[in-house]
Nucleic acid binder design. Structure first.
Length: 429
RNA sequence: GGAGAGGUGGCCGAGCGGUCGAAGGCGCAGCACUGGAAAUGCUGUAUAGAGGCAACUCUAUCGAGGGUUCGAAUCCCUCCCUCUCCGCCA
């Protein structure tokens, strides 16, 4: 959520930054509504002040022996009743304006960082660096897509998953399940060693939490909802983990907070019919190790760079070729001010595919979720900055391994770093 | 699921219609005392919004929302959450 005060102070600047994303976001309506609302607030609080005075006056008169039924008291009550009527008229108006402003603010995306490249869509994202060219497989022309090799090896079952759920689900069998588990453990151990504290939050989360991180109100159709309860299946650990601190005032000394978290993630993938219909790339349910940081505002840019490195370190240890893309303003997620995507090489389709998305949300989520910190011995509070990134998506990592480590004989080698976790070096039929 | 108890400031805890943003204590900060500290004493110590250059002023907030009243932390209604006992259950 944007800061209303800041919009008021720097309207041109805010509008200019929003325009870098999309011209549909116009702040003028918010400014107009806010002006009306503040005028009403001033009038209303004056009336309330007068009413408070009257109540005190009545209290004093009764205490000094005057009857509550006396003419004098009755007259003052009449004035108060008069004011109450005016208030009954004003209050709903003000409340309505506040709701309108709040809804508008919730529907506005974050301001892009000054450093975010300007562009209209994903074609204008900027490649920042590329790693692992030496590890590109040299037998690309004979490599099968991961779903084919996975089914041949008997470790991925898509048809049976469809039978028990629907399309876009997978059943992992034998070494498939073991590899998933190994990847989770490997990634968690590495991120714990890098300083992140592990958490395992609930998979079902409430609407307030989804609003806090920005999925609601605009993107409700992307998540699975439990229709009998105010609960949703978490689309990413970002939501429960960031919201652990919702409505909290942290001591400055507690910052920075670093969490890593393995969770299943559930997404409806509405609007992606026909896209990535095969394999592990786009499923309704997938596993992910997520990194979440809660930091002081002035540190968020450097914390962001460090978080990207933590995610990259996993790919490097697995020796999977990847590139780092910085998203342009037109492709930036709703709450992000700046975002890097890590894209892993998938030889069967001859492309890089997103395997991690690392964003700095600045104070956007902190404002919605009301996560603040307090400096010792100082008055007032400040909003924290929140960041998160995948470290990494497990299913897509498995897809990348099945393809990049595929041998001409149809077996799949296991990356060195993963062998201790799996207890073997090769998957074969 | 059934029965009961309860949700007050950073924490503990009083207040149960009147000047209460809320006694008292703990904690924390400043000052005094001290060679220094402890102990002690004094003072201060919530959040948000609006107005003002500022000092500051006003408003709201005692789980949330509504109601009664000139006036609600206190009374009434609805909801949420926590705890205890019973049942069921991985």
């Amino acid at each position: 959520m944007l800061d209303l005060k800041y919009i008021r102070q720097e309207p041109e600047k805010v509008q200019e930054l929003l325009n870098r994303r999309d011209s549909q976001y116009q702040i003028q309506e918010i400014l107009d509504l806010n002006q009306k609302q503040r005028d009403l607030e001033t009038t209303r609080s004056r009336l309330q002040a007068r009413n408070n005075e009257i109540s005190k006056e009545i209290g004093q008169k009764i205490k000094s022996g005057l009857s509550p039924e006396s003419e004098e008291v009755k007259n003052i009550k009449a004035e108060s009743n008069q004011i109450k009527q005016e208030l009954n008229d004003l209050e709903p108006q003000e409340r309505e304006l506040k709701t309108q402003i709040q809804n508008l603010l919730l529907s506005f995306p974050n301001l892009p960082s000054e450093t975010t490249p300007v562009g209209k869509d994903d074609t204008e994202n900027v490649e920042t660096r590329r790693w692992g060219d030496d590890y590109l497989p040299d037998n690309s022309d004979t490599i099968s897509p991961h779903w084919e090799i996975g089914e041949k090896l008997g470790i991925l079952e898509f048809n049976r998953a469809v039978k028990i759920a629907q399309s876009r689900f997978v059943n992992l069998v034998g070494m498939g399940a073991a590899l998933e588990r190994a990847l989770i453990n490997f990634m968690l151990n590495r991120q714990i060693a890098a300083g992140y504290q592990e958490v395992m939050p609930p998979a079902l989360i409430n609407s307030d939490s989804l609003t806090g991180t920005g999925q609601l109100p605009k993107f409700g159709e992307e998540s699975f909802q439990c229709n009998r309860d105010d609960l949703w299946l978490a689309p990413t650990a970002e939501v429960p983990v960031t919201n652990l601190y919702r409505e909290e005032i942290l001591d400055a000394g507690q910052l920075p907070i670093y969490h890593c978290s393995y969770t299943p993630c559930f997404r409806r993938e509405a609007g992606s019919y026909g896209k990535d219909t095969k394999g592990l790339i786009r499923l309704h349910q997938f596993n992910k190790v997520e990194l979440v940081k809660i930091v002081r505002p002035e540190n968020s840019p450097s914390e962001h760079e460090a978080l990207v490195q933590n995610a990259e370190a996993i790919l490097q240890e697995l020796k999977l070729p990847y590139r780092v893309m910085e998203l342009c303003t037109g492709d930036l997620g709703f709450g992000a001010a700046k975002c890097y995507d890590l894209e892993v090489w998938l030889p069967s389709s001859n492309t890089y595919r997103e395997i991690s998305s690392c964003s700095n949300f600045t104070d956007f989520q902190a404002r919605r979720a009301n996560i603040r910190f307090k400096e010792a011995n100082q008055k007032g509070t400040h909003f924290v900055h929140t960041l998160n990134g995948s470290g990494l998506a497990i299913g897509r990592t498995m897809a990348a391994i099945l393809e990049n480590y595929q041998q001409p004989d149809g077996t799949v080698k296991i990356p060195d770093a993963l062998q201790p976790y799996l207890g073997q070096s090769l998957i074969s039929v």
